[in-house]
């Protein structure tokens, strides 16, 4: 299965992936309209310290702890992609606590959000990968995680 991988060697901490993520999941056609005057809440985050940086988003684990822990059945695994049904989410934060990568975060409405590899939005393929100027995020087949 193709997954999003990061290579910190080429990450510039420009944070563009976060903005492309927020835009892709906004449902808007224009990035300006989607993100102007907004504090974005993307599903991918740049971690940076001491000159090292990389983007963190859902790893789409083969044995996902978040899906196992979900008390309401909101999280599910379909063709390897871990999806969230926000209508079912009760905001218990079990997934947030169980994710070893810190890749699940709450939205303003209290339900959780996570990377779904842009399979459920208009982008189709991961917008963070398309928007990375330096090839630091890639979408490729690397076998099992």
């Amino acid at each position: 299965m193709k997954r999003v991988y990061v290579n910190e060697k080429w990450c510039l901490a420009c944070h563009l992936c976060e903005y492309y993520c927020a835009f892709a999941n906004s449902g808007e056609k224009s990035m300006v309209k989607a993100l102007k005057n907004l504090k974005i809440n993307p599903r991918i985050h740049i971690e940076e310290k001491n000159g090292i940086s990389f983007a963190v988003s859902c790893r789409h684990c083969e044995e996902p702890l978040c899906v196992k822990g979900c008390i309401s059945g909101a999280l599910s695994q379909k063709d390897g992609v871990i999806l969230i049904d926000q209508n079912k989410c009760v905001g218990c934060y079990t997934c947030v606590l169980s994710c070893p990568y810190g890749a699940i975060s709450p939205t303003e409405t209290g339900v959780m959000q996570k990377c779904e590899l842009c399979t459920t939005n208009a982008s189709g393929t991961p917008a963070c990968v398309k928007g990375c100027p330096n090839g630091a995020i890639v979408f490729e087949e690397r076998g099992t995680v």
Binding site: L12, C14, H15, L16, M31
Partner: peptide
């Protein structure tokens, strides 16, 4: 300014 979303990529780069 009507287009700028203050993502600060210009500043970082």
């Amino acid at each position: 300014q009507s287009r700028c979303i203050a993502c600060r990529v210009c500043e970082r780069q």
